[in-house]
């Protein structure tokens, strides 16, 4: 599956900004928002090839946002990757159950982020 555009939702402004820069430098077109609710709002206007969601966010967390994306027929086909500082196997299982195709653990390697995403999407395509 060809990935060109990525929507990333991450509440920490610095991580959001470096992720955005890292992904843009890897050749993606990136939109970055601070919360799950904002991500859903943006998805109503336009579709992205991939959504990256942080696990813990203040208004609407990543798990719930993922469920809503997968529950909406218009967006259900968009792959979702979860981003989390948590490393508990149970949390990852919950993310996968909510419909995410993979988990990327924080702290991630900014230089490898783009490649990881291509790898994951290549494998799931």
């Amino acid at each position: 599956m060809q990935i060109n555009s990525i929507l990333i939702a991450e509440d920490d402004p610095h991580i959001r900004r470096v992720s955005e820069i890292a992904l843009r430098r890897s050749g993606f077109e990136v939109a970055a928002v601070a919360d799950g609710a904002e991500a859903l709002q943006l998805l109503e206007d336009r579709l992205f090839d991939l959504v990256v969601l942080d696990g813990m966010m203040p208004k609407l967390d990543g798990l719930e946002a993922c469920r809503q994306i997968k529950g909406n027929p218009r967006t259900a086909h968009v792959p979702v990757i979860m981003l989390s500082a948590r490393t508990q196997a149970t949390d990852e299982a919950a993310g996968l159950a909510a419909g995410a195709c993979a988990y990327i653990r924080k702290p991630f390697n900014a230089l490898e982020l783009g490649d990881r995403i291509r790898e994951i999407c290549g494998a799931t395509a």
Binding site: V18, A85, K106, P107, F108, A110, L111
Partner: peptide
């Protein structure tokens, strides 16, 4: 440790990007 990870993630990533870009 959890609390330290978040700022470290952005510092780490920012330094990597600054050096390579």
């Amino acid at each position: 440790s959890h609390e330290l990870r978040t700022p470290l993630t952005s510092v780490h990533a920012a330094l990597q990007l600054a050096l390579t870009g």
